[in-house]
Design a protein around this nucleic acid. Sequence first.
DNA 1: GTCTATACATCGATAGAC
DNA 2: GTCTATCGATGTATAGAC
Lengths: 205, 205
Amino acid sequence: MPNNTTLHKKNSTKEKILKVSTALFSVSGYRATSMRKIAKEVGIRESAIYNHYKNKEEIFLEVAKGIFSSPFTKEELDIKESALKGKVFLQNFVMQYKLLTFDKNNENMFRLLMIELFQNKELREQFMSEFHEKNIKILSEVFFIMMQNSLIRSQDPMMISYEFLSTLFYIRLQVTLMRFDNNSANLLSTQFEKHVEFFWESIRV
Amino acid sequence: MPNNTTLHKKNSTKEKILKVSTALFSVSGYRATSMRKIAKEVGIRESAIYNHYKNKEEIFLEVAKGIFSSPFTKEELDIKESALKGKVFLQNFVMQYKLLTFDKNNENMFRLLMIELFQNKELREQFMSEFHEKNIKILSEVFFIMMQNSLIRSQDPMMISYEFLSTLFYIRLQVTLMRFDNNSANLLSTQFEKHVEFFWESIRV
DNA sequence: GTCTATACATCGATAGAC
DNA sequence: GTCTATCGATGTATAGAC
């Protein structure tokens, strides 16, 4: 969904290549996804792909961009105001995280991230900065404000941000694993709410 | 280190293949590791490999075995006795986990696990049962006993086991990522201890 | 048990006609 | 922009001599 103009639903070949590649990469990873498979799925010959992308790596990097451009931190609202909500903020944050976890598009991206994390240095760096540090930074600020307003006990904001985020990540990984094999993730999905409850009880004054 | 007999330090070709393969697989994953590379590293021709292993898949499965056979839960001591130690048990558990995280051998295995987790169904199932559920089970038993002895507050043992374990996993992932790119993981390594402190304060009576 | 030689599939990528 | 044709590299695996 390009946000520049309104039209632009033109199913250009380039867009189709990107869409198909995203699906293939996220299921099989970089190496197992061949230009031939992409071409076949798109409905053109391999050589035609090179009219749109320089090479396979360029397609992958374009796909990889989408991993972190997703609305991970679209909640850039007013942090100060949000923080004053206390527990409600955490509940909202987790709900957002949960929605991403169960969103088909984001699920594919997360899977791709996991597959390529140890095979692509650029992706690792992006993971650290865009995924981890960005979230830790926002949470730290929020927790700091909560402490100032005596909503929670005084502790190292970064440390408790880490505690809060790490469990979310682990639940997400497990859910994605389960759903990949078409197993039900119902039981797991309640872990999100349980986590908020437990965590809030751990930090509140 | 085979534990059956004492000798057996014979650097047989088969063992060398396994060793080399483990290193290559854990860095590049299954597909990117070719029989040619393995052969070259071992110092023989590709065809000679087939005297020891049926095919590439067989080598990989042999390597994969090592992922979960490592001393992940070697602490099968007396659970009841351990649980009564309260916080000290958790500290020991985390220390074990930390040692594994920084052990070169286990680091490779963990990396391999992450790379292949979404590309090998068998590995996913093993991860769930051997890595996740096994740890959750042990921790749940321990926490249950702690509750019975009024060392910690009454809560769902599985839930708090999940909370405890998930952060350990996340720290481990981060440490492994950092060390893969030769970055220092010193700052991160203290997260293990911080986690125990925070967690214990959250559950103790 | 290791070698040479080879088979054969698939890979990413390019040249040039249309 | 897409096609056919083709390249060279790389992939797994086998046959048979030593």
